[in-house]
C-alpha cells in the first residue's frame, strides 16, 4: 500500500513537472498574462484609481466583486467551523483552585458548583502556574501587534498588505492573548457573540458599500459615486479603504472563531 501510494505520488509529481515545462518563463514579456490585461493595469491603474499599489487596485477596485466573494468564503469557513465543532453540552468535571493555599478541588457533580470569586478560581484540567515572563512579554507585545495590524489595513493601497493580511495579524494578536493567558481570559474580553457579529458585519460592510453605490446611481461597488459625499479627491482610494476594513473585520473574527473552536473542541471553556 505504501509502495502504491509512493508510485502514485511520483507519477502525479512527474506529470505536474511535465506540465510546467509548457508554462512561459518567469518574467517573460510574451507570456499570455502580460500581453493583454496586465499592460492596461500597469499603464492606467494610477490614473484611474490614484492608488500606487497596483495589486490592491486590481483586487479591491477592478476585481472587487471577486474579492467580495473571497470574503464571503472566509466567512463561510468560520461558519462551517462553528457548525461542525461547536458543542453546547455543559462539561461534567469542574476544577477549582483555592488561590491562597493552591489546593485544587475536582467537582464531578455538574449541579454543585463552587462560587468563583476572590477565594476560588475556575481552572483548566491541564493547569500550569502562570509564567510571569510570558505574560509580561505578551502583554507588552500585543498592543504593538494590533497597531501594526491596523497600519497594514489602513495602508493597503500604498504598501503591501491590506484587509486579509491585517485581519490575520489582528486575529493572531488575539490568539496570542489566549495562548499566553488562557482561553477563558480571551473569551471574557471577546465574547463568542461579538465575534460572530463581527465576522458577519465585515461581509456586510463590503456588500453595503457596493449596494449604497448602486443606490447613489452607479454600478455595484462603483466608488466614484461617493464623490458628492466625501469629495472628489482620492475617492476610489477611500472606497478601497472602506472595503479593506470590512475584509479585515471578517478575517479577524473568523481566525479567532476557528482557533477557539479547534483548541477547545467546541466547548469554549479550556484550551491552550
Amino acid at each position: 500500500m505504501k509502495l502504491l501510494s509512493l508510485i502514485v505520488v511520483c507519477l502525479t509529481g512527474g506529470l505536474l513537472l511535465y506540465g510546467t515545462a509548457d508554462l512561459p518563463d518567469w518574467g517573460d514579456p510574451n507570456a499570455p498574462a502580460s500581453l493583454h490585461l496586465s499592460n492596461y493595469y500597469i499603464e492606467n491603474a494610477v490614473r484611474d484609481t490614484q492608488v500606487p499599489n497596483l495589486v490592491t487596485a486590481v483586487l479591491a477596485d477592478y476585481r472587487s466583486v471577486d474579492t467580495m466573494f473571497e470574503t464571503a468564503v472566509v466567512f463561510c469557513a468560520g461558519l462551517a467551523c462553528f457548525l461542525l465543532l461547536r458543542d453546547f453540552t455543559p462539561k461534567k468535571d469542574h476544577y477549582y483552585r483555592h488561590v491562597p493555599t493552591g489546593v485544587i478541588l475536582h467537582v464531578k457533580n455538574p449541579d454543585r458548583q463552587v462560587i468563583v470569586g476572590n477565594e476560588f478560581e475556575d481552572i483548566d484540567k491541564e493547569w500550569l502556574p502562570p509564567d510571569t515572563i510570558i505574560k509580561t512579554v505578551c502583554r507588552m507585545l500585543i498592543p504593538f501587534i494590533q497597531i501594526y495590524a491596523l497600519y497594514v489595513v489602513a495602508h493597503g493601497d500604498f504598501s503591501p498588505g491590506g484587509g486579509f493580511q491585517g485581519g490575520v495579524i489582528f486575529g493572531s494578536s488575539l490568539i496570542l492573548l489566549a495562548i499566553s493567558y488562557n482561553l477563558k481570559y480571551l473569551l471574557k474580553r471577546v465574547s463568542e457573540k461579538f465575534l460572530g457579529i463581527l465576522s458577519a458585519a465585515g461581509v456586510l460592510v463590503y456588500m453595503g458599500i457596493g449596494v449604497v453605490a448602486m443606490v447613489l446611481g452607479g454600478n455595484f461597488l462603483d466608488y466614484e459615486k461617493y464623490a458628492p459625499i466625501f469629495g472628489e479627491h482620492h475617492i476610489r482610494a477611500l472606497g478601497m479603504l472602506g472595503v479593506e476594513i470590512g475584509v479585515g473585520m471578517a478575517v479577524t473574527a473568523v481566525m479567532v472563531i476557528i482557533y477557539i473552536n479547534i483548541v477547545s473542541e467546541g466547548k469554549h471553556d479550556e484550551g491552550l
Binding site: 499599489n53 495589486v55 490592491t56 497594514v152 503591501p160 498588505g161 491590506g162 486579509f164 493580511q165 490575520v168 495579524i169 486575529g171 493572531s172 490568539i175 495562548i179 481566525m255 476557528i258 482557533y259 479547534i262 483548541v263 484550551g271 491552550l272
Partner: peptide
Amino acid sequence: VDVAFTEASVGAGVSTVFFVA
C-alpha cells in the same frame, strides 16, 4: 511582495497555530 506578506501572515503564522491547536 503582497503574496509574500500573505504567505508570512497566513502560512507561517496562523495556520501553524491552527496545526498546533
